[in-house]
């Protein structure tokens, strides 16, 4: 039977994975967002030759399940470059988040009202100024709410990294269960730790959504 002491040990052990979970989420979100910018710009290009590779990247990356990506990078590329689980997971998750965020940014750019571009053009702004001073700031606003809620999805996706051996929340829960800890308790605790991060995050994303609705004109 599990005593209070057992449960508090479980808490401690599983809690040590929290940092890794958060690091994976933050790193893959931020690096992914940086990569997503040029991808989204290419994706919205009027030139087919520029647009096509970006479209292919977004579709293919999103078309393959997260787990399969992580297995390809960790086991598949293992014969070529041997990576530790954490870097392998970071590469995979960053790849995936860059594709999802690029799609959000594309939607942001395309949903800025056409009148905005026309007004900027009519003022004689150069195309670069039209984009960076008028379109981009509004596109960011439009892309923010879906991107914030993507952060929640990404947080939950990081759990898959435990399968290739990244020592996150769920990894430790699984390990303790293998050592004889009660599974119901261990995974309830693991779930609780995810909720501690994901619930505030998703409230934040709704808050952002609400704030921004007041600020932007969307078609």
């Amino acid at each position: 039977m599990n005593t209070e002491a057992d449960i508090s040990t479980l808490f401690q052990v599983i809690g040590t994975g929290l940092v890794v979970t958060i690091v994976m989420t933050v790193v893959s979100f931020c690096v992914g967002a940086v990569i997503a910018v040029p991808v989204a710009l290419m994706r919205t290009s009027r030139t087919w030759l520029v647009r096509a590779p970006a479209t292919a990247f977004i579709d293919v990356v999103r078309g393959i399940p997260t787990l399969v990506w992580l297995l390809i990078i960790f086991y598949g590329l293992g014969n070529i470059v041997s990576l530790d689980p954490l870097p392998a997971a970071l590469i995979g998750l960053t790849l995936i988040s860059s594709a999802y965020l690029a799609e959000n940014f594309r939607a942001g750019i395309e949903n800025v009202h056409t009148g905005q571009k026309e007004a900027a053009a009519a003022l004689g702004l150069s195309s670069a100024h039209q984009f960076w001073r008028v379109i981009a700031p509004q596109a960011v606003n439009i892309a923010m709410p879906p991107s914030a809620s993507y952060a929640v999805a990404l947080l939950k996706d990081t759990a898959i990294a435990a399968i290739i051996g990244v020592t996150d929340i769920i990894f430790f829960a699984q390990q303790e269960v293998a050592r004889g800890a009660p599974a119901v308790t261990a995974f309830l605790i693991a779930g609780g730790f995810y909720l501690i991060v994901s619930v505030p995050l998703s409230y934040f994303s709704r808050f952002v959504d609400h704030k921004i609705r007041e600020k932007v004109v969307v078609v």
Binding site: K156, I170, P182, A183, V184, Y194, S198, V199
Partner: peptide, 23 residues
Amino acid sequence: IEVFRGIPLLVVIFFAYFGFPDI
């Protein structure tokens, strides 16, 4: 709804797979 949207699917799978036999 909030709980199941807030925890990873993998946690639910493990909970069910390892936890159900316990109960």
